[in-house]
Simulated assay, not measured.
Amino acid sequence: MIRHTVFFKFKVGISEIEKQEFFKACNQLSLIPGIQNFEVVKEKSPKNDFEFGLLMVFDNSTVYENYNTHPDHVLFVQNYWLKKVEDFIEIDFEPVVE
């Protein structure tokens, strides 16, 4: 299992309407096959500068790679992410097996 997390902040000047459009587009990502437990979250801690996050789970690396290269994801990155996101951190992790 892979847990894919991305925390981000918007570019200065992005309006509330643009943010709503962005989140609507985010929610469409949840329709890509293989995504589980999709969430859009808001940061509550003052310990970092990120405002929001996207969380999702994939069964394995193959499913995760299919998501990364899926045309809907690629279009989201081009049409929304690159235009509206100022900074982000992406962390992908899997459980530690003992």
Rank of each mutant, 00 (worst) to 15 (best):
M1P: 14
M1H: 15
M1S: 15
R3M: 15
H4R: 15
F7L: 13
F7I: 15
F8C: 03
F8E: 01
K9A: 05
F10G: 06
K11D: 15
V12W: 09
V12P: 06
I14N: 05
I17E: 12
I17R: 02
I17C: 01
E18Y: 08
K19C: 09
E21Y: 08
E21S: 09
F22P: 07
F23H: 02
F23N: 00
N27V: 07
L29Q: 14
L29K: 11
L29H: 10
L29Y: 09
I32H: 11
I32Q: 13
I35F: 10
N37S: 13
N37G: 02
F38H: 12
F38S: 15
E39Y: 07
V40E: 03
V40A: 01
V41W: 03
K42R: 09
E43H: 09
E43G: 08
K44Y: 13
S45E: 05
P46S: 11
K47G: 08
D49W: 05
F50D: 01
F52R: 02
L55N: 04
L55Y: 06
M56I: 01
V57P: 06
V57C: 04
N60D: 09
S61I: 02
S61T: 02
S61V: 04
S61P: 01
T62S: 04
Y64W: 03
Y67F: 03
N68E: 06
T69K: 04
T69Y: 07
T69I: 07
H70E: 07
P71S: 05
H73P: 01
H73I: 04
H73K: 07
F76K: 04
V77C: 02
Q78H: 07
Q78C: 00
N79T: 12
N79F: 07
N79Q: 10
N79I: 10
N79S: 11
N79R: 05
Y80C: 09
Y80P: 08
W81E: 07
L82Y: 08
K83D: 07
K83W: 06
K84R: 09
K84V: 00
K84Q: 09
V85W: 03
V85G: 00
E86F: 10
D87P: 10
F88K: 07
F88D: 03
I89E: 13
I89G: 10
E90W: 07
E90F: 08
D92Y: 13
D92E: 12
F93L: 12
E94W: 13
E94T: 10
P95C: 14
P95H: 12
V96M: 11
V96R: 12
V97T: 10
V97P: 09
V97E: 14
V97Q: 12
V97W: 14
